[in-house]
Computed example of a mutant assay.
Amino acid sequence: MTIAAIYAEFAAREARGVSPAYERLASAVTRDRELLALLAALPPAKRQPNLLFGVVRLLGGPVEDPAAFHDYVVANWPVIEAEMRTRATQTNEAGRCAVLLPVLTALPQPLALLEVGASAGLCLYPDRYTYRYGDHLVGSGDPVLACTATNMAPPIGLPQVVWRAGLDLNPLDVTDPVDLAWLDALIWPEHMHRRARLRAAAAVVATDPPLLVRGDLVDDLPALAAQAPPDATLVVFHSSVLYHVPTPRRVTFAEVVRGLPGHWIANEAPDVLPYDTLPMPPSEARHNVLALDETPLAWTRSHGQAIIWFA
Score class of each variant (00 low, 15 high):
residue 68 A to Y: 01
residue 68 A to W: 00
residue 68 A to F: 00
residue 68 A to R: 12
residue 69 F to E: 03
residue 69 F to L: 07
residue 72 Y to I: 03
residue 72 Y to P: 00
residue 74 V to M: 04
residue 75 A to L: 02
residue 76 N to A: 11
residue 77 W to T: 13
residue 78 P to E: 06
residue 78 P to D: 08
residue 79 V to I: 09
residue 79 V to E: 14
residue 80 I to N: 02
residue 82 A to V: 04
residue 83 E to A: 14
residue 83 E to C: 10
residue 84 M to T: 06
residue 84 M to F: 05
residue 88 A to M: 08
residue 89 T to N: 02
residue 89 T to M: 01
residue 90 Q to C: 01
residue 90 Q to T: 07
residue 92 N to V: 09
residue 92 N to A: 05
residue 93 E to I: 03
residue 95 G to K: 02
residue 96 R to W: 03
residue 97 C to D: 07
residue 97 C to M: 02
residue 98 A to Q: 02
residue 99 V to T: 15
residue 99 V to K: 00
residue 100 L to V: 04
residue 101 L to S: 02
residue 101 L to V: 05
residue 101 L to P: 01
residue 103 V to Y: 00
residue 104 L to P: 08
residue 104 L to C: 06
residue 105 T to R: 08
residue 106 A to Y: 02
residue 107 L to C: 06
residue 108 P to N: 05
residue 109 Q to L: 04
residue 110 P to H: 09
residue 110 P to W: 08
residue 110 P to I: 12
residue 112 A to M: 05
residue 115 E to G: 04
residue 117 G to C: 06
residue 118 A to F: 04
residue 119 S to M: 07
residue 119 S to N: 08
residue 119 S to R: 06
residue 119 S to Y: 08
residue 120 A to E: 06
residue 120 A to Q: 07
residue 122 L to F: 05
residue 122 L to T: 09
residue 127 D to E: 14
residue 128 R to L: 10
residue 130 T to L: 07
residue 130 T to G: 12
residue 131 Y to E: 10
residue 132 R to Y: 06
residue 133 Y to F: 15
residue 135 D to M: 04
residue 137 L to Q: 14
residue 137 L to I: 15
residue 138 V to M: 11
residue 139 G to E: 09
residue 139 G to S: 13
residue 141 G to Q: 12
residue 141 G to I: 13
residue 142 D to L: 15
residue 142 D to M: 13
residue 142 D to P: 14
residue 143 P to V: 13
residue 143 P to G: 11
residue 143 P to A: 12
residue 145 L to Y: 11
residue 145 L to K: 12
residue 146 A to W: 00
residue 148 T to Q: 15
residue 149 A to W: 10
residue 149 A to S: 14
residue 150 T to A: 13
residue 151 N to R: 14
residue 151 N to E: 14
residue 152 M to R: 15
residue 154 P to Q: 07
residue 154 P to T: 07
residue 156 I to V: 14
residue 157 G to C: 12
residue 158 L to N: 09
residue 158 L to S: 10
residue 159 P to W: 11
residue 160 Q to F: 02
